[in-house]
Every structure is written in C-alpha cells, then in structure tokens.
C-alpha cells in the first residue's frame, strides 16, 4: 500500500506553468541536440525553405514589373505584408510542426503512445519536435519588413514597434490555429493530407490585402477562416496609421478565440479517435 500512497502524493502535486516550461525546454534542448547531428538534412531543408520564400518574393516582383500597383498597394507594402506573414508563421513552424506528422502517427496507430503521460496531450505531442528551421522564416520575414519599412519611409517610433510586436503575437496564434484545425482533420477523415495542403494554399493568400476580395470572401477570411488577421489587419496599424480599420484592434480577440477553438477541436478529435482507431 505504501507505493500507492506515495504516487498519489506525487500525482496531487500541481503541474503549473513552470512545470510545463521546464519539461518543454528539456525536451526541445535534447531534440535540437540530436537534430544537429544530422547536419546535411538540416542545411538542405533550411536552404529549401529560404528558397521557397525567396521565390515567393520573386513572383511578387515579377507581377509588379507589369503593374505599378494593385488596388492602391505598391510593391513595398505588399512585401511588408508578406514579411509579416513569415514572422507570424515562425512560432507555428518552430513549435507546432509536429502537426505535419500527426496523420502519419494516427494512421499507423502510434498515436496512442502519447496518451499515457500525466501531461496535457496536445502539449506533449507538440513538444516532441522543435523545428529550428523556422528561424530562417523569421530572418527572411524580418528582412522584408525592415527593407520595406525603410523604402516606405515609415516612422520608427515606440508606438509602431509595440503595435508590430503585438500584431506578430496574435497573428501567430491564428497561424497556429489554422494548422491545428487542418492537422486534426486526420482524426475524423482518412487521408487528410489534402486538408493540410488546402490550409497551406489558404494561408498563402494571407499575404494579400483583404480589400482585393469580394464581400462574401472578405467575410469568410475575416470571421470563418480568419487569414486576414495573419497579416492584413495587424499590419494596417503600422502601414496606414491614419486609416486603421476597426477590426485591427480585435486581432487579439480573434487570435485567442481561434487558438482556443482549434485546441478544443484537436483534443476532442484525439480522444474520440482512439476509440475508432485500429
């Protein structure tokens, strides 16, 4: 009976934020260490990712060779939006990248192994992988923003920097939420890869000003698949400080609410899947 008493005591220990931070950093430190021993994979993947971003910028530039501006947006403003999406995508890329493996472990039945730990399932699954390549995204994104900030001669002051940082934080929650929702599709349907790639296509459109879309799509991109909050709304506070849309100030609300919904859906899917699995 002694053993049972002891573990009951441990179980009742509080698992607070500090506990989770500690675990997280322990796991990712080990993960990074082991990943760096496969250096060629890391370097090729990093080059591939930066190349992708660079080609996207190139395609912007190609379009703007033919048109001086699109609906009142010039090349540098568009570049700013693109840089913003890259920075906002960094946390999703670094910390939630295991979402891309989810369907594989779900279909192979290995997912069950994540369910036996005394920690939050979502946390535990995500903690497994930390993708340092994401830092490349951050670097390219910040370069775009600094370059276009300079070209657009936007003022550099405390207010716009704070707005920018808050914008990054809440926009990144939206990016994570979309990724969570798309990956959790594998709990409900077979071969859900298309959902992920669809969400990727969708995310690709976050870099355009929402004003180019018609009323119905504008509504969808604002309230249903809120990619407009990935770059457009938060950027407006910096890009057009005299003409900030009201919805810009709701970016935190959308970020938090959508992240919370995505978390709930993911968890619900995870626990209901285990019944049908195998």
């Amino acid at each position: 009976m002694e053993t049972s008493d002891m573990s009951m005591k441990t179980a009742s220990k509080r698992r607070g934020l500090r506990y989770y931070f500690n675990i997280y950093f322990r796991i990712i430190a080990q993960d990074i260490k082991s990943k760096l021993s496969y250096r060629s994979d890391f370097i090729i993947s990093l080059i591939g990712m930066i190349l992708t971003d660079a080609v996207e910028i190139l395609s912007f530039w190609l379009v703007f060779q033919n048109f001086p501006s699109v609906k009142g947006w010039n090349f540098y403003e568009m570049l700013f939006l693109y840089g913003f999406t890259l920075v906002a995508s960094t946390p999703a890329q670094c910390m939630f990248d295991n979402n891309w493996n989810l369907r594989l472990v779900v279909y192979s039945g290995d997912f069950i192994k994540y369910c036996f730990r005394p920690v939050n399932l979502f946390f535990y699954f995500m903690s497994e992988i930390f993708d340092i390549k994401g830092v490349g995204k951050l670097f390219v994104g910040l370069s775009c923003i600094v370059y276009s900030w300079n070209k657009l001669a936007l003022p550099v002051n405390f207010k716009s920097l704070v707005l920018l940082i808050f914008g990054f934080v809440f926009a990144s929650l939206i990016v994570i939420a979309i990724l969570n929702l798309a990956s959790s599709a594998c709990f409900f349907i077979m071969n859900s890869f298309f959902v992920l790639s669809l969400s990727n296509t969708l995310r690709g459109y976050a870099r355009y000003p929402i004003t180019i879309f018609s009323g119905a799509l504008k509504f969808v991109f604002t309230f249903i698949a809120p990619i407009a909050f990935m770059a457009y709304y938060p950027s407006m506070a910096v890009l057009r400080p005299d003409n900030v849309p009201v919805l810009t100030w709701f970016t935190p609300v959308f970020g938090i609410v959508f992240f919370y919904i995505s978390y709930k859906v993911w968890m619900k899917g995870a626990l209901s899947y285990n019944g049908t699995g195998n």
């Binding site: 060629s40 090729i44 993947s45 591939g48 992708t52």
Partner: peptide
C-alpha cells in the same frame, strides 16, 4: 545521396 526528403522536395516544388 542525402537524407533530406522534405528539403529536396520543397526545392523541387518551388523550382
């Protein structure tokens, strides 16, 4: 020649 499926594939995709 390399271990990096993802890295190679993403480069192909974009090129």
């Amino acid at each position: 020649y390399t271990e990096s499926i993802w890295g190679i594939d993403i480069m192909k995709e974009v090129v």
